[in-house]
Design a protein around this nucleic acid. Structure first.
Length: 206
DNA sequence: TGCCAGGCCCTCTTTAGGGCCTT
């Protein structure tokens, strides 16, 4: 079974180390080439959202006043994802916010992250750029037309990673593209992608 | 006082600097 969770956070800024907090989280389960379940919630950390981020995401301070606490949402997220490995676009960003929010409820992440941005840079080197929205348009993937909301972005990332898996399966005659291969591929030298894939194919018995 | 992310990647590099990407 090759299941993983695509996760996306909306936040008050770029760095939990500088006091920024999550305002919304979404997670979608990808099983094979389809989304089988999803989780989404706004979350109230009791901090104000800067106006330029309210404009970017459409998430207002008034919306968060009605939202459940971060503690409740993060516990529910932990229950939803279980031990499934993660995928995110620019995963270093979502990793640091997930770890920071889970740390607040004394919960420690055990599963690895794969990054759809790092993999995309290797698989689609000639894309105009590797922003999520650009890749979705470039590859003609389905969208809801909504951007910078957690569930919409998580679904787009899921579509992107399914496209990557399908393209790799077709090009390199792979039976599947497991999460472990994505983790290896995102660290591969750019001029050695084919070699990395063939070595990993043998190692994982694909 | 003033400033403040950070990991990855490229190159006019490696004793460094700057762009990308996320909100």
């Amino acid at each position: 079974m090759n299941k993983f969770v695509v996760i996306d956070f909306e936040t008050t800024g770029l760095s939990p180390n500088l006091g920024d907090r999550a305002t919304e989280v979404a997670a979608v389960i990808v099983d094979g080439d389809r989304i089988t379940d999803s989780f989404q919630s706004l979350m109230n950390a009791g901090v104000a959202i800067p106006s330029y981020i309210q404009q970017l995401t459409g998430i207002s301070n008034a919306m968060l006043r009605e939202a459940p606490s971060c503690q409740k949402v993060m516990q529910a997220l932990a229950d939803f994802v279980g031990d499934m490995p993660f995928v995110a676009h620019n995963a270093s960003f979502d990793t640091k916010f997930l770890d920071a929010e889970w740390y607040r409820i004394q919960y420690k992440r055990r599963q690895p992250f794969a990054c759809s941005m790092l993999v995309s840079r290797r698989i689609y080197p000639h894309a105009p750029d590797h922003k999520l929205g650009t890749l979705v348009r470039h590859l003609k993937l389905p969208t809801t037309g909504e951007y910078h909301r957690a569930l919409a972005d998580a679904k787009m990332t899921a579509s992107l990673i399914i496209k990557i898996q399908n393209d790799l399966q077709e090009k390199y005659k792979l039976a599947s593209v497991p999460h472990e291969m994505l983790c290896i591929l995102q660290k591969s030298p750019k001029d050695a992608i084919a070699n990395t894939i063939m070595k990993t194919k043998i190692k994982l018995g694909l």
